[in-house]
Structure formats: structure tokens, C-alpha cells
Amino acid sequence: MFHKNITDNTEPDYAENYKIKLGVIMFFIYSLIYAGFIAINVLAPLLMAKKIIFGLNLAVVYGFGLIIFAVISALIYNHFCSKKEETFKQKK
């Protein structure tokens, strides 16, 4: 009982491979942008003080951008995963 699987994992997930592949691709895209942020800070820290838009500097724009991009890419990922899951359900 203690070690019984308490969750519903019995249904085969046909979209699994697709989701893993998409996840890895999106992970690498985000990692690259995140690495860009680190790289600018390390290699050209003064660039971060440069005003970009509406009087906001690169540090603020890039920082907010990383947060907003994380939310957007999460929504995109969910959209494609859910779509694929639905397609397989309908095929079944």
C-alpha cells in the first residue's frame, strides 16, 4: 500500500517522445538567452547600464525579458503538448 503508485500513470502516453523532444529544444533556446545575459554581465558589464527603451536600461529590459519569455515559452510548450495529446486521443 505504502509503495503503491498513487497516480494515474497507467494510460500510455503516445505524445511522450514529441513532448520530450520539444522540451529539450525549448530548454536549449531559453538556456542560450539566459547564457547571453550572463555573458554580457561578465564580458561587458557597463553595457547593462545602457538605456534601451523608455529610459530603461539593458539590465532591466533583459531581466524582465527573461521572466516574461519564460512565461510565454511555457504557454507555447503547453499549447503544443496539449494539441499533440488531443491528436493522439482522437486517433485512438
Binding site: 503508485n5 502516453d13 522540451g23 529539450v24 530548454f27 527573461l66 521572466i67 519564460a70 511555457a74
Partner: peptide
């Protein structure tokens, strides 16, 4: 910024496979 970026690793790499494997 770093704390939130960490969730990208959780979502894209770990969430579903881990759920499948664990109890």
C-alpha cells in the same frame, strides 16, 4: 531572474518524466 529561469528546467526537462517515474 535565476530562480524563475530554474522553472524552465523544471518544466521542459523534469516535470513530466519525473512524475511518470516517481511515487
Amino acid at each position: 531572474i535565476g530562480y524563475l529561469a530554474g522553472w524552465i528546467v523544471a518544466l521542459f526537462v523534469v516535470a513530466e518524466p519525473l512524475k511518470k517515474l516517481g511515487k
